[in-house]
Design a protein around this nucleic acid. Structure first.
Length: 420
RNA sequence: GGAGAGUUGCCGGAGUGGUCGAACGGGGCGGUCUCGAAAACCGUUGUACGCCUCGCGUACCCAGGGUUCGAAUCCCUGACUCUCCGCCA
């Protein structure tokens, strides 16, 4: 959420952000309602002040033996007026609140303008692997090695669901454990295992709601949501709290399945494991002091890169243009891993700095060195998601006979075998 | 699922209708004392919004409604925590 005072002071910046991010928030309407609200609030405060003053005099009058019937009758109508104002004010407040929830975060300075075509590659690691045979793609390799079974998964749940089988299931589990161990052991993250089902407020805190309601699986009976990423549960871990200065910065890593309806994206890059309704992901989440967040963003990108390097996978690093940024993000850097059999780059990690946008929504604050209460900054990034890292891995490490060599770092997780 | 108890400030814990944003104790911070520290003593210590911004007002005692001139205090609904019973991975 953007600070209302900031919107008041810089409405033009917000209007530009709404356009650059292809959002629909009505800034003028917010300013108008804000004005009305403050006026009404002022009137309310004054009336309430008078009510309190007179009411507090009543016991003294009674003690003095005075007749309070007239004054009580008059106060009755004051009370009625206050009640009307309360109702009006709470309507205005919730309308304003709902409008504020539709205002996207401002893109950070230096983020390129425009749509996806303006995303900028900032570096790459390694080279696309050369083969002296025709490399097979994920689906062909899965067939040979019996790694996953999409037909049977579809039978149970529909298209877009995965059943990993045998060695595939083992490999996927190895990846998850490797990711977690790597971040806790080498990068100093604390592991968190949080709920996969959360309430509406939690979904609003990180910015998925109200915009993306249609993209999430919802449990009607309880008004709960299946998380689309553990960013949601982990970021809300501190919702509503004021953290002591000594607790910052916090760095968490968390495994979770991710559930996405992918409404409207049918038929788009959905071959094999590329785009599915349920997948596993290891997520990094940070709670940091505001002045450090952009440095932390770079650090997190490197944390994710380290994983790809350890697995020997070529990738490129891309900074997203404004039109490709998510609603809540101020700056996002993607990692795209090379999948030689599919002959394309796959987005495998997305690292974002939200500044204080999520912290305002979820009301997460901290006490700075001087004891002043401020909103902190939140960031998160995949480190990594399995289906796409799985694809890149098997396609990169395939052999001419269709077998798959296990990268050295994963062998301890797979019985120290060399070949899957 | 059934029965009961509870939810107050950084923490413990008073407060069952009026001047209570809230006693008291602990902790934190500042000061006195000291070479320094401890102890003792004194002071201070929530968040947010608004306005005619050295100041004043309003809101917040789990959340939302209700009763009342007036609610932390009474009533209703809900959430959560704890205990017991039942069920269960």
């Amino acid at each position: 959420m953007i600070d209302l005072k900031y919107i008041r002071n810089y409405p033009e910046l917000l209007k530009a952000a709404v356009i650059n991010k292809n959002e629909k928030a009505d800034i003028d309407q917010i300013l108008e309602l804000d004005e009305i609200k403050r006026k009404r609030q002022f009137e309310f405060d004054n009336l309430r002040s008078e009510q309190k003053r007179i009411s507090s005099e009543i016991p003294e009058l009674k003690k003095a033996g005075a007749d309070t019937t007239a004054i009580m009758a008059e106060m009755k109508s004051t009370a009625a007026a206050i009640k009307d104002m309360t109702i009006e004010l709470s309507k205005i407040t919730s309308d304003l609140e709902n409008l504020l929830l539709t205002v996207p975060n401002l893109p950070a300075a230096g983020v390129p303008l425009g749509g996806e075509e303006n995303n900028q590659q900032i570096r790459a690691w390694g080279e696309p692997k050369k083969f002296d045979f025709r490399p097979l793609d994920q689906v062909e390799l899965a067939e040979i090695n019996q790694l996953f079974d999409l037909k049977r998964a579809a039978k149970m749940s529909g298209s877009g669901f995965i059943t990993y089988t045998g060695k595939g299931a083992a490999l996927e589990r190895a990846l998850i454990n490797f990711f977690l161990d790597f971040h806790t052991g080498r990068h100093g993250y604390e592991e968190l295992s949080a709920p996969f089902i959360v309430n509406r407020q939690t979904m609003t805190g990180t910015g998925q709601l109200p915009k993306l309601e249609n993209d999430m699986y919802h449990i009607d009976q309880d008004d709960m949501f299946l998380i689309p990423t553990s960013e949601v549960s982990v970021t809300n871990f501190y919702a509503g709290e004021i953290l002591p200065y000594s607790l910052l910065p916090r760095k968490f890593v968390s495994y979770s399945p991710c559930f996405r309806r992918e409404a409207g994206s049918y038929g788009k890059d959905n071959k094999g494991l590329q785009r599915v309704h349920q997948f596993n992901k290891v997520e990094m989440v940070r709670f940091v002091q505001p002045e450090t967040s952009f440095d932390v963003l770079e650090e997190m990108v490197h944390d994710a890169e380290d994983i790809l390097q350890a697995l020997g996978l070529h990738y490129r690093v891309v900074i997203l243009a404004t039109g490709d940024l998510s609603f809540a993000s101020a700056k996002t850097i993607d990692l795209e891993v090379w999948a030689p059999g599919s002959d394309k780059y796959l987005e495998v990690s997305s690292v974002s700095n939200f500044l204080d946008f999520q912290a305002r929504r979820a009301n997460i604050r901290f006490r700075d060195a001087d004891g002043k209460v401020k909103h902190l900054h939140t960031l998160n990034g995949s480190g990594l998601a399995t289906p796409r890292s799985f694809i890149a891995l098997i396609e990169t490490w395939q052999n001419e006979d269709g077998s798959i060599t296990i990268p050295e770092v994963l062998r301890p997780y797979l019985g120290n075998r060399e070949i899957l």
